[in-house]
């Protein structure tokens, strides 16, 4: 298989370039991450992140043939050659396919990704009904891989002030949580020109989410909750 991989080493002083590789996938190597690990054995200067190898940690998000995805759950058989690999768009590149996630996690922390409840802790746990728990389905599964945020044109235009689909999906996860007591504050925080309302419903986020989630739907749900809150 032929691969074209984005290479950039800031310490070398050289400009970024695409490097060609040839590789014959071995027995049992079905996923793109398997191929990357083999390529790394050939060329140990090639940098990429990986951890769980099964689509749970979200470390190996990258742009694969023009679409963001996770290398570990992308079958090699599904890819057209040459397989072109680039870092996540709009993220500052640290080296090769490794990007700086600082801004992404700053936006994530801004939405307060934890249940806010100032009441005294109960003796055992804060209970939910099955229906209340079901409200979190389609939200809690996000692994923060940033495939959606890195593929969102609104984020490309306003990466500093627009929170991006991943952070907004997480915001809805806590707005929808029956145990959270800060819904009003959360909605008011998001009600400005940039944090949420730069979303133009382009839906690239939903298109590329490797977990099959729908951040666009979550953003719509926040808007509807805001509207009810305002009325």
């Amino acid at each position: 298989m032929q691969f074209l991989i984005y290479r950039y080493d800031p310490q070398s002083g050289a400009r970024p370039h695409m490097q060609a590789y040839d590789l014959a996938p071995g027995h049992g190597e079905h996923m793109l991450l398997d191929a990357l690990i083999r390529l790394h054995e050939q060329d140990d200067s090639l940098a990429f992140r990986r951890s769980c190898r099964e689509g749970v940690c979200g470390s190996d998000a990258m742009n694969i043939n023009g679409r963001n995805g996770l290398a570990c759950v992308t079958p090699l058989a599904s890819l057209k050659e040459p397989v072109t690999l680039r870092p996540l768009p709009s993220f500052p590149v640290i080296r090769d396919l490794v990007v700086d996630m600082t801004r992404f996690f700053r936006h994530y922390h801004a939405i307060r990704p934890y249940v806010v409840d100032d009441d005294p802790p109960p003796e055992r746990e804060r209970l939910q009904t099955p229906a209340e728990r079901a409200e979190l389905d389609g939200l809690y599964e996000c692994i923060l891989c940033a495939c959606c945020t890195g593929f969102c044109p609104s984020y490309w235009w306003n990466p500093e002030r627009y929170l991006g689909p991943a952070a907004l999906l997480q915001a809805m996860r806590f707005i929808a949580d029956s145990r959270d007591h800060a819904t009003g504050e959360r909605l008011e925080f998001l009600d400005d020109a940039y944090r949420l309302f730069r979303c133009r419903s382009i839906m690239n986020c939903t298109e590329v989410c490797p977990k099959g989630l729908n951040p666009n739907r979550a953003i719509d749900r926040i808007r509807m909750r805001m509207l009810k809150h305002e009325v």
Partner: peptide, 9 residues
């Protein structure tokens, strides 16, 4: 602002 965020939307 009158025309920002939710109100503009």
């Amino acid at each position: 602002s009158v025309l920002t965020g939710l109100r503009a939307w």
